[in-house]
């Protein structure tokens, strides 16, 4: 019964997202393709954060760092005339993984409140670094003249083509995180979140597993960064702004921690809601802020917990 509901949920989700471009094409509303593509890119970022936050219990308040690193990898290589996506994207993923490894190595030894502050501080360091390097536009950022080239296989300047690429990559990421969370590795990660003392007593050292998860999450978010840079054709330090980290975190919580569908649902609701509010008033954050506070106080189940078939297990 449960599995049946899950199957329907995911089938509806995939079909709705896949059919969106032709439908809005008929309605002449290309804006929605743009919006949902953005939603799906952030769903990748949120899914990667969910691996460490939801399953691993690591409250990283610096996940936007990898969005920035992935984005700048594309931007900087393009700045020097290297437009091949075959080069740019692996560099984006690899560089993000390396930085995550370094930040994780220092911060994972700390716990709780410390971990939150340290991840936030390191991300802010990267933000200031982005601002202070004038070659790449400093504060203003820089335009990406040519989007990533994939030997003519796909044209990322075509909004619909890039939409479908993002769609495939997003479901791929969600599935990957889903598999990892249920593997031996994922079980160790979740067990350490549940009871660290017990894990140590039966012989697991949580540190190395957490660091590995942190690095994987950074790498996946680096991919989201590369996609986002291609989406906006522009890269600024704002990719790494700490409010961005907070937003990604909220997507995970709003969607439902440690659920496969949660990050997508959270990204969808938060970004669509932000877009609606912003269309209504310039001061939308004055409304969003209190709503976030209320959702923390009263709505901790997350969307995945209330939509039939969206939950796990």
């Amino acid at each position: 019964m449960r599995a049946h509901a899950q199957l329907i949920f995911w089938a509806v989700l995939v079909a709705a997202l896949a059919l969106l471009p032709p439908v809005v094409g008929v309605l002449h509303e290309p804006f929605y393709v743009e919006l949902v593509r953005r939603v799906m890119i952030f769903a990748i970022a949120a899914a990667s954060l969910n691996l460490i936050l939801g399953y691993g219990g690591l409250v990283s308040f610096g996940h936007a760092a990898y969005l920035g690193i992935g984005g700048y990898a594309v931007g900087i290589l393009s700045f020097y005339g290297m437009n091949s996506g075959w080069l740019q994207w692996p560099v984006a993923i690899g560089a993000s993984a390396l930085v995550a490894l370094a930040i994780g190595a220092v911060s994972i030894r700390a716990s709780g409140m410390y971990f939150i502050m340290i991840t936030l501080a390191f991300t802010q360091m990267l933000y200031y670094l982005g601002i202070s390097i004038e070659e790449f536009g400093g504060d203003d950022g820089m335009r990406i003249k040519t989007r990533s080239q994939f030997s003519g296989l796909i044209d990322l300047a075509d909004p619909v083509a890039s939409y479908y690429l993002v769609l495939v990559l997003m479901f791929g990421t969600i599935y990957l995180v889903h598999r990892i969370a249920r593997s031996r590795f994922g079980m160790v990660l979740r067990a350490a979140k549940s009871n660290e003392a017990r894990s140590r007593a039966i012989g697991f050292s949580p540190y190395s597993y957490r660091l590995c998860a942190f690095t994987i999450a950074g790498a996946l978010c680096g991919l989201a960064g590369a996609l986002l840079a291609n989406h906006t054709a522009y890269i600024t330090p704002d990719f790494m702004h700490w409010t961005r980290s907070g937003e990604i975190m909220f997507m995970v919580i709003l969607g439902g921690v440690a659920s496969s569908a949660g990050p997508l649902l959270g990204a969808l609701v938060l970004l669509v809601f932000e877009t609606l509010l912003a269309g209504w008033t310039e001061h939308w954050q004055v409304i969003l802020g209190p709503l976030l506070v209320l959702s923390v106080i009263f709505f901790r189940t997350g969307l995945a917990g209330i939509i039939p078939g969206a939950g796990d297990e």
Partner: peptide, 19 residues
């Protein structure tokens, strides 16, 4: 837990800055 503290006060920041 700390996660909830962080999220709620993050909402407050957005509110106060905009206010």
């Amino acid at each position: 837990d700390h996660l909830d503290h962080v999220l709620a006060t993050f909402g407050l920041i957005l509110f106060f800055n905009e206010l």
